[in-house]
Amino acid sequence: MLELRLVQGSLLKKVLDAIKDLVTDANFDCSESGFSLQAMDSSHVALVALLLRSDGFEHYRCDRNLSMGMNLTNMSKMLKCAGNDDIITIKADDGGDSVTFMFESPSQDKVSDFEMKLMDIDSEHLGIPETEYHAIVKMPSAEFARICRDLSTIGDTVVISVSKDGVKFSTSGDIGSANVVCRQNNSVDNKDNETVIEMNEPVSLTFALRYLNSFTKATTLSNTVTLSMSKELPVVVEYKIAEIGHIRFYLAPKIED
């Protein structure tokens, strides 16, 4: 028996919006610690890892570890039927072949339930090692989204370079080239507007912009985004989900042959 009640149901709607274009089918894993997902995109270039901790739910009952295969397009269709202020409860029976999403309006005068068929998904679970990153950049998520969107009108790939001067995003294409440099700044009024750079050593990596643009669909989940980078390793693009968890996107770099 599984029963997870999320008062801020809009978070789940936003999570689905953030990942449904990157991943088609995925297993949601439910355990004592929380509700999580790990999935690669179809071309195996990016990986998404979601965690919603059990303590972030108003009610969290998970009698035994359960892995539920879901088609994210279909799940998103169902969650779109929930109001933004609705409380969402996810229910499933052990060994069942369906999951139920229950939506309650804030005033409790409307209750809906949507049952979705589960599917068997054969997916490989990857171990992500703890890494000391060469550079970690925290910046406003809207700013990062803007840069990725702007640069993708010029080129297909971006070089992200972190140095003591700041973080530089560079691209080039048929019509020309572009560089955007963000320097560290400290905002007295609002921490969310800060760009903070922690650098142990300079790092420069090349990535496909279309994946980064896809990750920025998570912008609505958090005012800030963190980019963690090390030489010749995947970048981690992390959005914290208020009080409950995070969504992390890992993107493999482009490396000289």
Binding site: H44, V45, A46, L126, D257
Partner: peptide, 14 residues
């Protein structure tokens, strides 16, 4: 020419 790497190259299957 830079080549796109696969993500599974960096992580091990568990």
């Amino acid at each position: 020419m830079k080549k796109q790497q696969s993500i599974s190259r960096f992580f091990t299957a568990t």
